[in-house]
Design a protein around this nucleic acid. Structure first.
Lengths: 168, 168
DNA sequence: TTTTATTTTCAAAATATTTTGAAAATTCAA
DNA sequence: TTGAATTTTCAAAATATTTTGAAAATAAAA
């Protein structure tokens, strides 16, 4: 397989992968393209390589910047803006974990805390089932939260190394 | 807050949570409803409680069964089918991890293995950037894969306990 | 300032996904 | 068997999301 085909496959597959994770296909594809591009690209480069419209590129790059996965670069003497993606996958992963934790897990845990104390007879079957389930999810979520915080702070080698050593 | 309000909030919030993870809202809501219901429910119960159509309930329950998150129950003497959800959140989490690994991570790793050896001069900047990125993702993915396998096999207390102890 | 290049916005169009509901299929009891 | 209850299917409708492209805004050069 040559480079062009391989790139194409990777971009398309990363896009499909993204859709299973609540990320739109184009955003994931732009991310993939920037990850395998040795040099920064302009909006026009992305438009051309993925054959998508200017507005689409612009909006999705903005989102990627919000996610902290893409950086805007100014090249002295050049009028256009350039964009690069973080290429160290550990950094990409921790950045995604950080953002999703903030956007999804933290609010969920906050809600669960509120739902834990409801009015009524604790002996009642329906109330017991509800509070037990909520408490279980909250406990699990809090532990996951702690672990993810550690991951975010940790260094790749240390974190993965520790896990492998422990679980081998 | 009373039980009815709390249930409502949980169902709606679990549904919203699901949509960030590539799961459709209704499927996540049915799952939530079954998790907090002390007794098994019929399709009609679900239709009524979530005010959605019969076809919708049927299709989504089928998906939940495919995911291994809901079980069909036959109650002797009853004509209708009943459904229950696993309520132990650790089991829910490992089941989801197991399925997503199979459906998403495993195929991705397989593709990356193919993309690792491409034709051309390894010194070429574009080729180097591509192979390095792919290799990085593959290595990270493989380690995650191993860890998730361990999680699937492990017991909740042991797994989370070990992690907490190690990283505390 | 005026002109030109570039980026951003956003309403409308295109596409994709979800939901409905009635018909078909299935299951079970009589 | 037959018939009633229940489940399943799936085309069409409703909704939601994504994409386009041209106009407006912004930034840099002349």
């Amino acid at each position: 397989m040559n480079l062009t085909e391989a790139k194409q496959q990777f971009i398309s597959s990363w896009g499909a992968f993204g859709t299973h994770w609540g990320i739109n296909k184009t955003m994931a594809q732009i991310h993939a393209l920037l990850m395998v591009s040795p040099d920064p690209l302009t909006q026009d480069d992305v438009m051309e390589q993925l054959t998508i419209s200017r507005g689409n590129v612009n909006m999705n790059i903005r989102d990627l910047i919000d996610w902290g996965l893409v950086d805007r670069m100014i090249i002295p003497g050049e009028r256009k803006e350039y964009f690069t993606a973080e290429k160290d996958i550990w950094k990409v992963a921790t950045q995604i974990v950080k953002e999703r934790k903030k956007r999804e897990l933290d609010p969920l845990l906050k809600l669960l805390a509120q739902l834990e104390n409801i009015e009524g007879d604790k002996k009642d079957k329906a109330i017991k089932q509800f509070t037990d389930t909520i408490a279980g999810i909250k406990k699990f979520g809090s532990q996951a939260d702690k672990m993810l915080d550690l991951m975010i702070k940790a260094d790749a080698n240390w974190f993965l190394g520790s896990l492998i050593k422990i679980f081998k």
